[in-house]
Amino acid sequence: MPKKWDELEEIQPAALKMIKNSIVKGRVAHAYLFEGMRGTGKRDAAILLSKALFCESPVDGYKPCETCLNCKRINSGNHPDLHVVEPDGLSIKKQQIKDLQEEFSKKGMESSRKIYVIVDAEKMSTGASNSLLKFLEEPGAQTVALLLTENPQKMLPTILSRCQMIMFRPLAPDIFIKKLVENGVDPDSAPLLAQLTNNVHEALDLNNQDWFAQAQKIVVKLYEVLKKDPLEAMVALQGEWFTHFKEKDQIDRGLDLLLLVFKDLLYIQLGKQEQIVFIKEAGRLQQFALQTRTRSLAGQMAAVLEAKRRLHANMNPQLLMEQLVLKMQEGSAFV
């Protein structure tokens, strides 16, 4: 069920204020670009704006009433003058935009207004992008385009220039943690999940994975053996890391977890224990922090960030991890 106006306004006040002003002042643009991370409410905002524009009796002149026929039909996904385009496989195809244009060449089924939402707009093929550009250049008087994206840099500048941009900020950690706990997540696990994703559904999925629970233990253990000697760390890599972190996205997740271990150690050394996210490992981390120099932690964090960059540049994952372990052992990193 899409969020109601007040719910979304609580987590995205700036974005909702811009949308409200557009409606109240009668200055709804013909095209908007909603930009922000996954899970920040872009799709909910697109549905809310659509409802507000179709609503038969908006509250205070801009909030959807949620009870009229138009609001109910949009909530159920079957309003004839609201069209949602999503990637067909890995991309949005040219034919999908052509079908949309054809649909919009017809008169509105129940009003002169038509709205279309393009989800993951950065995934439009070149042909689809060019077709959409022509569409944006000749907008109908009552046509509104809502483009949702996580990566506007992957879109044509000519498309971006024709849209009014509205930013959707990452959810504040305290709000996100509260939402996770409300959804049944252990309060000791929620801060860690909030550091890894800004999407409630993704966080809940991670929380329920045995793979993720095991990943946390392997990462902390790798740090522990790193303090001993390179040989033991290499054995840990071969014995546990490579058998658990197999896919590229899993390795990336493992590196994120390792980075959070170092951040926690730094927080402990700075006397900011309340900010650590590996809460269940707090006792062990306290001991580790006493045995590690602050200067070394900064270098190790830099090494992990460099490893993440190389991973995304398609470096061999096994070689990458072996080099990272050796790098973190250099220069007597540990006391």
Results as ranks from 00 to 15, higher is better:
residue 229 D to H: 13
residue 324 L to I: 11
residue 317 P to D: 08
residue 36 G to F: 04
residue 187 P to Y: 06
residue 331 G to A: 10
residue 247 E to G: 05
residue 101 Q to F: 00
residue 271 G to L: 10
residue 115 I to C: 04
residue 278 F to Y: 15
residue 233 A to E: 05
residue 71 C to F: 11
residue 177 I to V: 15
residue 225 V to E: 02
residue 187 P to H: 08
residue 207 N to D: 15
residue 289 A to V: 08
residue 252 D to P: 00
residue 257 L to A: 06
residue 40 T to D: 02
residue 110 E to Y: 08
residue 145 A to Q: 03
residue 271 G to R: 10
residue 171 L to F: 02
residue 186 D to G: 09
residue 327 K to I: 01
residue 10 E to V: 11
residue 91 S to T: 13
residue 3 K to W: 13
residue 87 P to W: 06
residue 100 L to H: 07
residue 50 S to A: 15
residue 279 I to C: 04
residue 234 M to D: 04
residue 174 D to L: 08
residue 193 L to N: 01
residue 254 G to Y: 02
residue 158 T to R: 09
residue 157 P to T: 11
residue 154 K to V: 01
residue 180 L to S: 04
residue 123 K to I: 02
residue 266 L to F: 14
residue 296 S to G: 15
residue 193 L to M: 05
residue 130 N to Y: 07
residue 78 N to C: 10
residue 169 R to D: 11
residue 93 K to T: 07
residue 265 L to S: 04
residue 6 D to S: 13
residue 286 Q to C: 01
residue 103 E to W: 05
residue 309 R to Y: 10
residue 233 A to H: 01
residue 10 E to H: 12
residue 108 G to N: 05
residue 231 L to S: 08
residue 259 L to Y: 14
residue 293 R to T: 07
residue 83 H to F: 14
residue 317 P to G: 09
residue 164 Q to K: 09
residue 132 L to P: 01
residue 64 P to I: 05
residue 189 S to R: 12
residue 235 V to A: 09
